[in-house]
Simulated assay, not measured.
Amino acid sequence: MTPSSSVRQTLAANLRRERNRRGLSLSELSRLSRIGKATLSQLESATGNPTIETVFSLSRALDLPISDLLETDPSGSVTVVRAADTEVLSGEGVDLRPLRRIQTGGLIVEVYDQQVRTDGRQASLGHAGTEHTIVQSGRLDVEVDGHLTRLGPGDYIAFDASIPHGYAAPEGPVRSVLLLQYRTPRSQQDDDESAVNAPH
């Protein structure tokens, strides 16, 4: 599935911001992320088609949460996310729908609806954060650092997401909930605390 123009534009703006904030050239980011310079240029101009693999590689290279690249900021005391209104980010074997970013204290948690297809294996070299997966239906194979675990409905797994890992659904499609947990960078915590404690 091709990402919509809104996803491409959001990623383009956030990627440019994060790369410039770090003082990285396209060539330097290409080396860190293992993504071609031409592809990065297309992503920054909102003409490329980002995949899960691309976004996770950028997250790893820039050491930031996925939602910092794809963030849409919900507001209000009640949040409802309709399946039909959510952009799908596809990879070799997984379709991800971002549902919510939760930030509290020194933690950020991203909530995703994750569907693992039977037509491919979703592999990751690793990225920032801790990964949590809860299987809703189907049988899910999770490989972490070369060790395979098979999960069924209701089963849960958590691991350091910086370790190479992968997902596969050998017996049919799998529906699961993916949570990505990050620690807030110290500088951001200090900024947040300063803003709270500043005189009004």
Rank of each mutant, 00 (worst) to 15 (best):
P3M: 11
S4A: 06
V7G: 07
Q9T: 11
L11T: 00
L11N: 00
A13H: 06
A13M: 05
A13S: 09
R17H: 08
E18Y: 02
R21N: 12
R21L: 09
S25R: 08
S25I: 09
E28S: 11
E28G: 04
L29R: 09
L29V: 05
R31K: 14
L32D: 09
L32V: 07
L32E: 13
G36A: 15
Q42I: 01
S45R: 14
T51E: 04
I52G: 03
V55Q: 02
F56L: 12
S57G: 11
S59W: 03
R60H: 14
R60V: 01
D63I: 14
D63S: 15
L64M: 15
I66L: 15
S67E: 07
D68E: 15
L70K: 00
T72F: 03
D73M: 08
V78I: 06
V78Y: 01
A83Q: 10
A83L: 06
A84T: 09
L89E: 03
L89V: 11
S90T: 14
G91F: 03
E92R: 10
V94S: 02
L96Y: 15
L96H: 14
L96V: 06
R100V: 03
R101I: 01
I102Y: 08
I102T: 05
Q103K: 12
Q103G: 11
T104F: 10
T104H: 13
G105W: 02
L107R: 14
L107H: 13
I108S: 01
I108Q: 01
V109K: 10
V109W: 09
V109G: 00
D113P: 02
G120K: 08
R121E: 05
R121H: 06
S124W: 08
G126L: 11
A128T: 13
A128E: 05
T130V: 15
E131D: 12
I134M: 15
V135C: 12
R139A: 09
D141K: 09
V144N: 05
V144P: 14
G146K: 08
L148T: 07
L151V: 04
G152W: 03
G152R: 10
P153I: 07
P153H: 11
D155P: 01
I157A: 11
A161Q: 04
H165I: 03
E171R: 15
V174S: 05
L180G: 03
R186V: 13
Q189T: 05
D190A: 12
D191L: 12
D192H: 03
D192F: 00
E193G: 06
H200K: 08
H200E: 08
